[in-house]
């Protein structure tokens, strides 16, 4: 058992932790294509769940359904018991669900500092009357930039950053957003070993601090290294959902994953 899984186990009460997000019989069709079909699963507080499966399995579509970027064709989504299906993405975000994107979608023309600052300011008014003061916000931005090694790049535009820095900015943004559930879409892909270690450390710290994480990841080291649970998707269906070992040692699933489709 890994360090993070161990801390989770220690923090976990005897009965299963609270269900944050309850997914039941979720469906998404694009024309005749079933991108997500009859998926049911629970995301529980403090549990790191990894979605694995071949490209096109419906992992990102599942994220888009949860965040409201796509509207479901059927099934239900409940956040802390409340029906969130059909809500606009910004309202779902304000409930405490944050995400990163596979293609990052940084605010390219803004500096690193502004990228982080703006996620802390969801309101539409030019000058916010409530919420944290400007000084508190700056302090938090600084803290997040320090943890993600971006402090020297505070005034660099996102577009001018190196690849790994862009990845970390995408993480910094989600760290500043104060969300309870993080949906990370291939957060570690393309990172060099050093950055990769930093990423793992950050993620473990955040999980220990109480963030619930759901990751889409192809790198099996990460999958085994930090997951409490693995959900295996293929062609929109949830084929397995359980302890990492039991899922990864299932020969049928590994055959699908590594391409020996019968």
């Amino acid at each position: 058992m890994t360090a993070s899984a161990a801390t989770n186990a220690a923090a976990r009460p005897v009965e299963a932790p609270e269900v944050l997000l309850e997914i039941r019989n979720l469906e998404k069709h694009f024309g005749g294509v079933h991108a997500v079909s009859n998926v049911s699963m629970d995301l529980r507080a403090g549990i790191v769940t990894t979605l694995v499966g071949p490209n096109g399995a419906g992992k990102t579509t599942l994220f888009n359904l949860i965040t409201g970027h796509l509207v479901r064709s059927g099934g239900s989504l409940r956040w802390l018991g409340r029906d969130i299906a059909g809500m606009k993405p910004y309202r779902i975000a304000r409930l405490g669900i944050a995400r990163t994107f596979q293609d990052l979608r940084l605010f390219n023309d803004m500096t690193v500092e502004e990228n982080i600052l703006t996620v802390m300011e969801p309101g539409a008014l030019p000058f916010s009357l409530s919420g944290p003061s400007a000084r508190e916000k700056r302090a938090k931005v600084e803290h997040v930039m320090e943890r993600t090694d971006l402090i020297d790049k505070a005034h660099v535009r996102a577009i001018d950053l190196a690849y790994a820095e862009r990845k970390f900015l995408s993480l910094a943004r989600i760290m500043a957003a104060d969300a309870r559930l993080w949906l990370l879409d291939e957060p570690a892909s393309g990172l060099d070993p050093n950055s990769y270690e930093t990423f793992l450390r950050l993620l473990r710290e955040e999980v220990a601090a109480g963030v619930t994480v759901c990751i889409i990841e192809h790198n099996l080291d990460i999958v085994v290294g930090i997951s409490d649970r693995i959900a295996f998707l293929d062609r929109g269906r949830l084929l397995a959902d359980g302890e990492p070992k039991s899922v990864l040692e299932n020969p049928e699933l590994t055959a699908i994953y590594f391409g020996d489709r019968a």
Binding site: K88, P89, Y90, A98, F101, F107, N108, T118, P122, A124
Partner: peptide
């Protein structure tokens, strides 16, 4: 500016 640069990311961070 955030909306201009990436509308979907902006709404993912709570922007109406």
């Amino acid at each position: 500016t955030a909306i201009r640069d990436s509308e979907s990311a902006a709404e993912s961070f709570g922007k109406n």
